[in-house]
């Protein structure tokens, strides 16, 4: 169970990106975060594994206070939380396989890994993960040679080999076309249903939210302004949706 308590983030520039945000996520949920551009979705997701240091508040996950961890402790928690980025964030010059293997960095012997050596069972695991996202034959290509959708699948495979208990996805489909968006969301749903991985995902499109969410929270100017179940949001009309989301809201199908 993930508990976010009174989370506040003030950037060095003085921008208040999150204001006293509190909510809980049960294990196995597919939580979708909605909100306008600039409402603080990325800041929230990045605070959870402390890619961004929260200014105030606590994040407690399975009784571990992530906000109080030292570096070593933080690394141990991070390796169990996958992160999927809107911009994929692959290391373009490295082969696809190495990008996926990077997901094992928190587990393997750090000294060996400095020479790009990974034990055979990790390599097998990485190839398996690539096969699961349908990219086994691209393992030895450079990451820069992939299309956007393929890159995002590699990103998911990288998160997968972490053997995560929780997956954070920051607008994972925002730079992909509708068909690809559904296929990527489909992968996430399978992970959620088959492996019971808790998923926190920020999204822009109403129909995707309605299709995949088991719970939804809405942010506006850094404040939590909406909480509802998947059921609630499926019964919602476009007009209601636009009320929390603003005029930019749209459906993927158009």
């Amino acid at each position: 169970m993930l508990r976010v308590e009174h989370l506040t983030k003030v950037y060095d520039t003085g921008t208040v990106a999150l204001k006293d945000v509190s909510f809980t996520v049960e294990d196995g949920e597919f939580l979708i975060i909605i909100g306008l551009s600039g409402s603080g979705k990325s800041t929230l997701l990045r605070s959870i594994n402390r890619l961004i240091e929260p200014t105030e508040g606590r994040i407690v996950w399975n009784d571990i206070d992530i906000t109080a961890l030292d570096e070593a402790g933080l690394r141990r928690v991070r390796r169990e939380i996958g992160f999927v980025f809107q911009e994929f964030n692959l290391v373009e010059r490295l082969p696809v396989l190495t990008n996926v293997l990077a997901g094992r960095l928190g587990y393997v012997n750090p000294w060996w890994s400095l020479f790009y050596y990974f034990p055979p069972q990790d390599q097998r695991r990485a190839l398996d993960a690539l096969a699961q996202v349908g990219l086994a034959e691209k393992a030895h290509n450079r990451a820069s040679a992939l299309s956007g959708g393929q890159k995002q699948r590699v990103g998911i495979a990288r998160a997968l080999v972490q053997n995560p208990k929780m997956l954070l996805a920051d607008e994972p489909v925002a730079s992909l076309d509708p068909v690809l968006a559904h296929s990527i969301m489909g992968y996430l749903e399978r992970l959620n249903q088959e492996r019971g991985i808790t998923i926190l995902c920020s999204l822009h499109y109403l129909d995707l939210v309605q299709r995949y969410a088991t719970r939804v929270i809405g942010l506006r100017d850094g404040r939590l302004v909406y909480e509802g179940t998947g059921e609630d949001i499926r019964n919602m009309t476009d007009e209601e949706f636009k009320q929390i989301y603003g005029e930019e809201a749209q459906r993927l199908g158009g």
Partner: peptide, 27 residues
């Protein structure tokens, strides 16, 4: 971006340099 990605896998500082920084700066 890649630095964040590698950090969020639980990599330490040296690993982050080897996997996210070095490949980018080597050329």
């Amino acid at each position: 971006g890649p630095i964040e990605a590698i950090q969020s896998t639980g990599a330490n500082r040296l690993q982050t340099i080897m996997f996210a920084v070095l490949p980018q700066v080597l050329p």
